[in-house]
Write a protein that binds this DNA or RNA. Sequence first.
DNA 1: CCCATATTCAACCAGATGGTTGATTTTCCT
DNA 2: AGGAAAATCAACCATCTGGTTGAATATGGG
Lengths: 113, 113
Amino acid sequence: MKRDLDQVFAALADPTRREILTMLLEDDMAVTDVAHPFEMSLAAISKHLGVLTNAGLISQEKRGRVKWCKLEPDALREASVWMQSFGQFEPVNLEAFERFLQAELPLASDSES
Amino acid sequence: MKRDLDQVFAALADPTRREILTMLLEDDMAVTDVAHPFEMSLAAISKHLGVLTNAGLISQEKRGRVKWCKLEPDALREASVWMQSFGQFEPVNLEAFERFLQAELPLASDSES
DNA sequence: CCCATATTCAACCAGATGGTTGATTTTCCT
DNA sequence: AGGAAAATCAACCATCTGGTTGAATATGGG
Protein backbone atom coordinates (compact mmCIF):
# COMPACT_ATOMS: atom_id res chain seq x y z
CA MET A 1 0.00 0.00 0.00
CA LYS A 2 1.19 3.48 -0.89
CA ARG A 3 4.26 2.22 -2.63
CA ASP A 4 4.85 5.50 -4.45
CA LEU A 5 5.28 7.42 -1.22
CA ASP A 6 8.48 5.39 -0.93
CA GLN A 7 9.74 6.84 -4.17
CA VAL A 8 8.66 10.38 -3.41
CA PHE A 9 10.34 10.47 -0.02
CA ALA A 10 13.42 8.66 -1.31
CA ALA A 11 13.69 11.21 -4.10
CA LEU A 12 13.41 14.05 -1.61
CA ALA A 13 16.11 12.53 0.59
CA ASP A 14 18.89 13.75 -1.68
CA PRO A 15 20.01 17.39 -1.40
CA THR A 16 20.95 17.60 -5.07
CA ARG A 17 17.46 16.54 -6.06
CA ARG A 18 15.82 18.95 -3.63
CA GLU A 19 17.93 21.72 -5.10
CA ILE A 20 16.86 20.70 -8.59
CA LEU A 21 13.23 20.92 -7.51
CA THR A 22 13.86 24.36 -6.08
CA MET A 23 15.40 25.45 -9.37
CA LEU A 24 12.43 24.11 -11.31
CA LEU A 25 10.17 26.08 -9.03
CA GLU A 26 11.22 29.17 -10.94
CA ASP A 27 10.91 27.83 -14.43
CA ASP A 28 11.08 24.80 -16.66
CA MET A 29 14.64 23.93 -17.60
CA ALA A 30 16.66 21.85 -20.02
CA VAL A 31 18.76 19.02 -18.62
CA THR A 32 22.04 20.76 -19.42
CA ASP A 33 20.91 23.91 -17.68
CA VAL A 34 19.80 21.95 -14.64
CA ALA A 35 23.24 20.37 -14.52
CA HIS A 36 25.14 23.60 -14.90
CA PRO A 37 25.38 24.79 -11.26
CA PHE A 38 26.38 21.35 -9.96
CA GLU A 39 29.88 20.01 -9.74
CA MET A 40 29.03 16.64 -11.11
CA SER A 41 28.74 15.01 -14.48
CA LEU A 42 25.80 15.49 -16.79
CA ALA A 43 25.13 11.77 -16.58
CA ALA A 44 24.77 11.99 -12.83
CA ILE A 45 22.24 14.79 -13.14
CA SER A 46 20.44 12.80 -15.81
CA LYS A 47 20.12 9.98 -13.30
CA HIS A 48 18.81 12.32 -10.64
CA LEU A 49 16.23 13.60 -13.07
CA GLY A 50 15.26 10.01 -13.76
CA VAL A 51 14.67 9.42 -10.07
CA LEU A 52 12.58 12.57 -9.82
CA THR A 53 10.59 11.52 -12.88
CA ASN A 54 9.95 8.03 -11.52
CA ALA A 55 8.74 9.56 -8.30
CA GLY A 56 6.39 11.71 -10.34
CA LEU A 57 7.91 14.88 -8.93
CA ILE A 58 8.85 16.18 -12.35
CA SER A 59 7.97 15.41 -15.96
CA GLN A 60 10.30 15.51 -18.93
CA GLU A 61 9.25 16.46 -22.41
CA LYS A 62 11.62 16.26 -25.33
CA ARG A 63 11.32 19.10 -27.82
CA GLY A 64 13.92 18.98 -30.52
CA ARG A 65 17.17 17.89 -29.04
CA VAL A 66 16.54 19.38 -25.64
CA LYS A 67 14.51 17.70 -22.93
CA TRP A 68 12.55 20.08 -20.76
CA CYS A 69 12.03 19.37 -17.09
CA LYS A 70 8.90 20.59 -15.40
CA LEU A 71 7.92 20.47 -11.76
CA GLU A 72 4.92 18.26 -11.01
CA PRO A 73 3.60 19.27 -7.63
CA ASP A 74 0.94 16.58 -7.42
CA ALA A 75 3.30 13.92 -6.11
CA LEU A 76 4.65 16.37 -3.61
CA ARG A 77 1.18 17.19 -2.48
CA GLU A 78 0.44 13.55 -1.83
CA ALA A 79 3.43 13.31 0.45
CA SER A 80 2.49 16.57 2.07
CA VAL A 81 -0.94 15.22 2.87
CA TRP A 82 0.60 12.20 4.49
CA MET A 83 2.71 14.40 6.71
CA GLN A 84 -0.24 16.56 7.59
CA SER A 85 -2.04 13.54 8.95
CA PHE A 86 0.61 13.64 11.63
CA GLY A 87 0.27 17.35 12.09
CA GLN A 88 -3.38 17.01 12.87
CA PHE A 89 -2.78 15.95 16.40
CA GLU A 90 -0.22 18.68 16.83
CA PRO A 91 -1.61 22.18 17.10
CA VAL A 92 1.85 23.63 16.67
CA ASN A 93 1.60 22.84 13.01
CA LEU A 94 -1.02 25.51 12.58
CA GLU A 95 1.59 28.19 12.85
CA ALA A 96 3.36 26.80 9.83
CA PHE A 97 0.13 26.90 7.86
CA GLU A 98 -0.68 30.43 8.75
CA ARG A 99 1.09 32.20 5.95
CA PHE A 100 -0.27 29.62 3.58
CA LEU A 101 -3.79 30.40 4.66
CA GLN A 102 -3.22 34.11 4.39
CA ALA A 103 -2.34 33.59 0.78
CA GLU A 104 -5.03 31.09 -0.10
CA LEU A 105 -8.11 31.79 1.95
CA PRO A 106 -9.23 34.80 -0.07
CA LEU A 107 -9.63 32.43 -3.00
CA ALA A 108 -11.37 29.81 -0.91
CA SER A 109 -13.82 32.28 0.59
CA ASP A 110 -14.96 32.80 -2.96
CA SER A 111 -17.11 29.71 -2.69
CA GLU A 112 -18.11 30.41 0.86
CA SER A 113 -19.96 33.68 1.04
CA MET B 1 22.97 23.15 4.39
CA LYS B 2 19.92 21.41 5.77
CA ARG B 3 21.71 18.12 6.10
CA ASP B 4 19.12 16.69 8.47
CA LEU B 5 16.36 16.97 5.91
CA ASP B 6 18.26 14.20 4.16
CA GLN B 7 17.83 11.95 7.14
CA VAL B 8 14.21 12.86 7.75
CA PHE B 9 13.15 12.18 4.18
CA ALA B 10 15.29 9.05 3.95
CA ALA B 11 13.67 7.78 7.15
CA LEU B 12 10.23 8.47 5.73
CA ALA B 13 11.06 6.63 2.51
CA ASP B 14 10.60 3.23 4.13
CA PRO B 15 7.05 1.90 4.56
CA THR B 16 7.95 -0.03 7.71
CA ARG B 17 9.21 3.14 9.32
CA ARG B 18 6.17 5.13 8.27
CA GLU B 19 4.00 2.43 9.78
CA ILE B 20 5.98 2.60 13.00
CA LEU B 21 5.43 6.34 13.13
CA THR B 22 1.72 5.78 12.63
CA MET B 23 1.70 3.32 15.50
CA LEU B 24 3.52 5.77 17.74
CA LEU B 25 0.92 8.35 16.89
CA GLU B 26 -1.43 6.51 19.21
CA ASP B 27 0.90 5.98 22.11
CA ASP B 28 4.46 5.51 23.24
CA MET B 29 5.60 1.94 22.81
CA ALA B 30 8.35 -0.44 23.87
CA VAL B 31 10.66 -1.79 21.15
CA THR B 32 9.28 -5.32 21.42
CA ASP B 33 5.72 -4.07 21.06
CA VAL B 34 6.66 -1.99 18.05
CA ALA B 35 8.16 -5.09 16.49
CA HIS B 36 5.21 -7.33 17.19
CA PRO B 37 2.98 -6.66 14.14
CA PHE B 38 5.88 -6.93 11.68
CA GLU B 39 7.11 -10.10 10.06
CA MET B 40 10.75 -9.33 10.58
CA SER B 41 13.33 -9.82 13.28
CA LEU B 42 13.52 -7.69 16.37
CA ALA B 43 17.01 -6.63 15.35
CA ALA B 44 15.66 -5.28 12.07
CA ILE B 45 13.06 -3.22 13.91
CA SER B 46 15.74 -2.04 16.30
CA LYS B 47 17.68 -0.76 13.31
CA HIS B 48 14.63 0.99 11.92
CA LEU B 49 14.10 2.65 15.27
CA GLY B 50 17.73 3.74 15.16
CA VAL B 51 17.18 5.38 11.80
CA LEU B 52 14.07 7.15 13.06
CA THR B 53 15.96 8.30 16.14
CA ASN B 54 18.87 9.63 14.10
CA ALA B 55 16.44 11.53 11.96
CA GLY B 56 14.97 13.00 15.10
CA LEU B 57 11.55 11.64 14.28
CA ILE B 58 11.34 9.67 17.51
CA SER B 59 13.16 9.59 20.82
CA GLN B 60 14.00 6.55 22.88
CA GLU B 61 14.15 6.51 26.62
CA LYS B 62 15.27 3.47 28.56
CA ARG B 63 13.34 2.82 31.73
CA GLY B 64 14.34 -0.37 33.43
CA ARG B 65 14.96 -2.98 30.83
CA VAL B 66 12.47 -1.63 28.33
CA LYS B 67 13.20 1.23 25.95
CA TRP B 68 10.24 3.44 25.23
CA CYS B 69 9.77 5.01 21.82
CA LYS B 70 8.06 8.36 21.52
CA LEU B 71 7.06 10.29 18.45
CA GLU B 72 8.90 13.59 18.01
CA PRO B 73 6.88 15.66 15.59
CA ASP B 74 9.34 18.54 15.38
CA ALA B 75 11.54 16.92 12.76
CA LEU B 76 8.48 16.06 10.76
CA ARG B 77 7.24 19.59 10.96
CA GLU B 78 10.52 20.88 9.59
CA ALA B 79 10.16 18.66 6.57
CA SER B 80 6.54 19.63 6.27
CA VAL B 81 7.48 23.29 6.14
CA TRP B 82 9.95 22.58 3.40
CA MET B 83 7.24 20.94 1.34
CA GLN B 84 4.83 23.75 1.97
CA SER B 85 7.26 26.20 0.44
CA PHE B 86 6.53 24.36 -2.77
CA GLY B 87 2.81 24.37 -2.21
CA GLN B 88 2.74 28.10 -1.85
CA PHE B 89 2.97 28.80 -5.52
CA GLU B 90 0.39 26.21 -6.37
CA PRO B 91 -3.25 27.01 -5.57
CA VAL B 92 -4.22 23.43 -6.35
CA ASN B 93 -2.74 22.57 -3.01
CA LEU B 94 -5.75 24.02 -1.28
CA GLU B 95 -7.84 21.01 -2.05
CA ALA B 96 -5.44 18.80 -0.16
CA PHE B 97 -5.57 21.10 2.83
CA GLU B 98 -9.31 21.15 2.96
CA ARG B 99 -9.94 18.41 5.46
CA PHE B 100 -7.08 19.71 7.52
CA LEU B 101 -8.80 23.05 7.69
CA GLN B 102 -12.11 21.45 8.55
CA ALA B 103 -10.45 19.89 11.53
CA GLU B 104 -8.46 22.90 12.63
CA LEU B 105 -10.42 25.99 11.79
CA PRO B 106 -13.06 25.53 14.50
CA LEU B 107 -10.21 25.71 16.98
CA ALA B 108 -8.60 28.62 15.23
CA SER B 109 -11.83 30.59 15.08
CA ASP B 110 -11.82 30.28 18.84
CA SER B 111 -9.49 33.23 19.00
CA GLU B 112 -11.30 35.09 16.28
CA SER B 113 -14.87 35.77 17.27
C1' DC C 1 21.42 -16.86 42.39
C1' DC C 2 19.39 -18.12 38.14
C1' DC C 3 16.53 -17.65 34.50
C1' DA C 4 13.73 -15.21 31.35
C1' DT C 5 12.96 -10.82 29.09
C1' DA C 6 14.35 -6.66 26.47
C1' DT C 7 17.41 -4.93 23.47
C1' DT C 8 21.54 -4.34 21.05
C1' DC C 9 25.87 -5.85 18.77
C1' DA C 10 28.60 -8.07 15.13
C1' DA C 11 29.24 -10.25 11.09
C1' DC C 12 27.44 -11.20 6.99
C1' DC C 13 24.66 -10.85 2.58
C1' DA C 14 22.05 -9.21 -1.62
C1' DG C 15 20.59 -5.41 -3.78
C1' DA C 16 20.04 -0.32 -4.25
C1' DT C 17 22.33 4.26 -4.71
C1' DG C 18 25.26 7.91 -6.34
C1' DG C 19 28.95 8.77 -8.68
C1' DT C 20 32.53 8.12 -12.57
C1' DT C 21 34.09 7.64 -17.65
C1' DG C 22 33.62 6.62 -22.54
C1' DA C 23 30.73 5.42 -26.29
C1' DT C 24 26.29 6.18 -28.57
C1' DT C 25 22.16 8.39 -30.36
C1' DT C 26 19.52 12.10 -31.91
C1' DT C 27 18.99 16.60 -33.53
C1' DC C 28 20.27 21.15 -35.02
C1' DC C 29 23.14 24.34 -37.80
C1' DT C 30 25.85 25.90 -41.69
C1' DA D 1 27.12 16.21 -45.63
C1' DG D 2 29.48 16.87 -41.52
C1' DG D 3 30.35 18.61 -37.11
C1' DA D 4 28.89 20.20 -32.57
C1' DA D 5 25.45 20.02 -28.98
C1' DA D 6 21.95 17.52 -25.89
C1' DA D 7 21.16 13.72 -23.58
C1' DT D 8 21.30 8.85 -22.50
C1' DC D 9 23.47 4.29 -22.20
C1' DA D 10 26.65 0.88 -20.38
C1' DA D 11 29.89 -0.73 -17.49
C1' DC D 12 32.10 -0.12 -13.48
C1' DC D 13 32.99 1.16 -8.53
C1' DA D 14 32.46 2.30 -3.51
C1' DT D 15 29.27 2.83 -0.19
C1' DC D 16 24.72 2.54 1.97
C1' DT D 17 20.52 -0.16 3.05
C1' DG D 18 17.56 -3.53 4.85
C1' DG D 19 17.47 -7.75 6.10
C1' DT D 20 19.34 -12.20 8.42
C1' DT D 21 21.41 -15.04 12.41
C1' DG D 22 23.82 -15.85 16.67
C1' DA D 23 26.07 -14.06 20.53
C1' DA D 24 26.30 -10.46 24.06
C1' DT D 25 24.58 -7.23 27.57
C1' DA D 26 21.62 -5.39 30.81
C1' DT D 27 17.67 -5.76 33.96
C1' DG D 28 13.79 -7.66 36.56
C1' DG D 29 11.44 -11.44 39.11
C1' DG D 30 11.03 -15.60 41.93
